[in-house]
């Protein structure tokens, strides 16, 4: 190695080295390779090992089983459009809604005409499914989520749909309201998160209760 010890540092016996091209490249390549193995292979493998042995359910996608069949994940929303189910957030994933292999939002700007016509269509669809309902529509029910996979709607969004679902299922609104209340999650410590309802879990419970 081509080095020139000059010891000009008052802090201690440090030497300036003017390394050769070869020694710089060797150090860069060898360290890159070893740090790659450590951070790119060993580290993910270690995290996988720990999480699979301690909390495999969470690490594998919080999957829900019904009668021995996987029917979804409690974290990932699904598409619903029958009146007897609560509907989730609109989803902008392609080619179909709630495509959990290609997440994403609409990315429409606030003044976009496409956004306005999409929202108008969604309001019309909600009204058509429930003509008697004259309430204003909670904003989350007609705007696409960021991931396109949002599992939740706001509590207001569930309340808005309550009469329609109760009607379609022939159950009393009060009974349904109690089930919705059971599925309502509130902000943690009063400030973390928003009042929300997990649509898939709620709908699964409705089907089970039948």
């Amino acid at each position: 190695m081509n080095t020139t010890p000059t010891n000009t540092n008052e802090l201690g016996a440090n030497h300036e080295s003017t390394p050769s091209l070869f020694s710089t490249l060797r150090a860069a390549i060898v360290l890159f390779a070893m740090l790659s193995v450590i951070t790119g292979l060993l580290y993910p493998a270690l995290v996988t090992g720990i999480s699979q042995s301690l909390f495999a359910h969470a690490a594998n996608g919080s999957l829900i089983e019904r009668n021995g069949r996987v029917v979804g994940s409690s974290l990932i929303g699904q598409s619903f459009d029958s009146p007897k189910y609560f509907w989730g957030r609109p989803s902008a994933t392609s080619p179909m809604a709630y495509n959990a292999a290609a997440s994403g939002g609409s990315n429409f700007g606030p003044n976009s005409d496409a956004l306005k016509s999409a929202v108008a269509e969604r309001i019309a669809a909600l009204r058509a499914a429930d003509p008697g309902n004259t309430n204003v529509v909670p904003v989350d029910l007609v705007t696409a989520s960021a991931s396109g996979l949002d599992p939740h709607i706001s509590r207001a969004g569930a309340d808005y749909q309550l009469a329609r679902v109760a009607n379609a299922r022939g159950i009393s609104p009060a009974t349904l309201a109690a089930i919705v209340e059971k599925h309502t999650e509130r902000p943690m410590f009063g400030f973390l998160g928003e009042p929300r309802v997990n649509v898939l879990l709620l709908n699964l419970e409705l089907d089970n209760a039948r």
Partner: peptide, 15 residues
């Protein structure tokens, strides 16, 4: 108390 409101296009309900 039942919804965040605001500009929810491109946002997640839980946030």
């Amino acid at each position: 108390v039942t919804q965040p409101g605001g500009n929810m296009e491109g946002k997640e309900t839980r946030f």
